[in-house]
Amino acid sequence: MVTLAEVARHAGVSSSTVSYVISGKRTISGATRQRVEQAISELGYHPNAGARALAGKRSHIIALVVPLRTDVYVPIMMEIAISVTMAARQYGYDVLLITNDEGPEGVRRVAASGLADGVILMDVELEDERIPVLRALNTHAALIGLPEDSTGLSCVDHDFFAAGASCADHLADLGHRDVAFIGYGSAVYQRHAGYAERTLAGFRDRAAARGLRILHRPCEGTYESTAGAFSRILADRPATTGFVVQNEGAIGPLMSLLRTAGRIVPEDASVVALCPEPLAEQYSPRLTAVTGPAQELGRRAVDLLMQRIDGKEPQEVTLLTPVLTVRESSGPAPLHV
């Protein structure tokens, strides 16, 4: 069994340095940290593995890293978190919540402490800085989200590429040719959030194949930012008759702005939202929307993590198929704009 001292010798540092890298209790230079993490990976060191073996039992706790951001839709995040908690209880596990504002250090602290038998990450970015920590510490993990490189990982997510494509198909089938995509704020794309970038990529790809002329306008989700995005769309492309919204906060303002501009939905403009069913149902007219089963994400993630904890180590990516439900907010493109 590899010891902490052997990791220290392999990395050319002191045992205390290795301990600080694992615990995150002190700041260690990037080069030293990388050396230690590489040694941990190469030697296959498992922090607290000996203590766990002597105890003869697991902690029966899993850590769930939940997003703490202003640019996420909190009700969906909470629905997933509740689903994870309920699924974990069926396995006899409790859930420890940690917030992603701690970044890689928070994951390192929990993984190295031995407090949790595994970790579930939410709000996964394409180049997520937390994933190298999980790999270096050989931590049991499941991801709700899909990074750019999913090699050796267990991931479950909505098929956001297909969701974006279905929005383009629906509006193209209705005869729309000028379509705008109102997305999340610029910061979401700058941090390469997988759900935002993959939806936009799927929309763009299918729009090109269907001959749509499109505009993408980021939006913070406030009334003011939505009004700004809407004004730019009409200024740049006055003939726009189709709107796709992937920002829950922007839906209400957009519907109001369309009415103010004298554009009746769906006679003059069609709106398709990527949002939960209850949200789509609360507007008038009710929204045509692309949705996915949030609770299923939580259940699947727990199942994948438990398989890893049991030594089965499933290396797979599961994408849940989105559903487009047609309601009153979308209709044939108007003959004249």
Rank of each mutant, 00 (worst) to 15 (best):
T3W: 01
T3H: 00
E6F: 02
R9A: 10
H10A: 13
S14A: 06
S23F: 05
R26V: 12
G30M: 13
G30D: 15
A31M: 05
Q34N: 13
R35L: 08
E37D: 10
E37K: 09
L43A: 01
L43F: 07
P47K: 07
G56H: 06
V66T: 15
P75V: 00
A81I: 05
A112D: 10
A112R: 07
A116T: 12
M122Q: 15
M122V: 09
E127I: 08
L137Q: 04
L137Y: 04
C167H: 01
A172S: 11
R177C: 11
V188I: 09
Q190D: 15
H192Q: 15
G194N: 14
G202H: 04
R206S: 10
A207C: 07
L212Q: 04
I214E: 08
Y223C: 06
S225V: 03
S231T: 13
R232T: 08
I233H: 03
L234Y: 06
V244K: 05
V244D: 02
V244R: 02
Q246L: 10
I251F: 05
E277T: 09
E281G: 03
E281I: 03
S284M: 12
S284F: 11
T288D: 07
T288V: 02
Q295K: 15
E296S: 14
L297H: 06
A301W: 11
D303C: 04
D303T: 06
M306W: 04
Q307V: 00
G311Q: 01
P314C: 05
T318M: 13
L319Q: 11
P322V: 00
L324P: 09
T325A: 10
V326L: 07
S329G: 00
A333V: 07
H336C: 13
V337H: 15
